[in-house]
Amino acid sequence: MTGTLLAESLINGLITGAIYALVGAGVALIYGTMRVLNFAHGEMMMLGAYFAWMGVAVAGLPVLLAFALALIGVMIVAAVIQRAVVAPVLAREDWSFRVIAATIGLSVALQSAAQLIWGEKFNALPYFLDGVVQIGPMRLPWQRAAIPIVAFVALGLSALLLYRSRFGQMIRATAQDAEAAQAVGIPAGLVHTAVFALSAGLAAIAAIMLAPIMSVNPWMGLPYILKAFAVVILGGLGNFGGAIAAGLLLGLVESFGVMVTSSEWRDVISYGLLIAIIWVRPYGLFGGREAA
């Protein structure tokens, strides 16, 4: 493998990994706070991309305004979903499995709703950043270079919010014991809703950054959801930082895996790695026993 090839694979891996980190961190955040695996998380990506596309390509809004509106739109949808679907199920027995079933149903329903509303056509969001950075023999369009940058800004802000703010304290208190938190005056229900919205926002950012490169369609969230789950398990369930690290790692493994074998084996490599690691370290690479 030559130096250029190595460097390019590294960059490819980091970019894919940044997306996995954005989506995976959201899944981890939801799991960490309310022990819910959200199978409709991929559809939050899909909605984010469609909302952005509607804003830019249909309504002709300025790019940044359209993205801000898309982000807010997805967060509202997520909040509604948390209130209408997740919260009622959480009150039931055996909820941890039922909520999986409920969100799987929701995921199917959202995909076909999107097909009904926006049609089966593949839509394209125009590139919003032009130009190509040339680093030695490597060519990196700004549109791609922006992905890891935006991802780390978004994840950094989320981390600040989680670990350095009053709101973050409330989230962590709720995560440890929702009833106890409620008892000391923390509105646990509202915290859950806010966490759901925040996570969906991270997924929407990933989708908006990807949309110009990969086209907007009702099924675009599908390939990412299982990857996000793998990331969350590898990072230690519910571990926000662990998910980010695992996301990057998975991106790199896939990128180098494709280099060595062939693209059709990419997903076999990632899921095989997941099962192998679970075998050796059942509670993830970065989490202790507690994180699970």
Binding site: L37, F97, L226, F229, V232, P282
Partner: peptide, 15 residues
């Protein structure tokens, strides 16, 4: 842990 079981078996099916 239920989520681990769920996701690992899902990944197995995908493989």
């Amino acid at each position: 842990s239920m989520p681990h079981v769920a996701i690992v078996t899902l990944a197995f099916a995908e493989i």
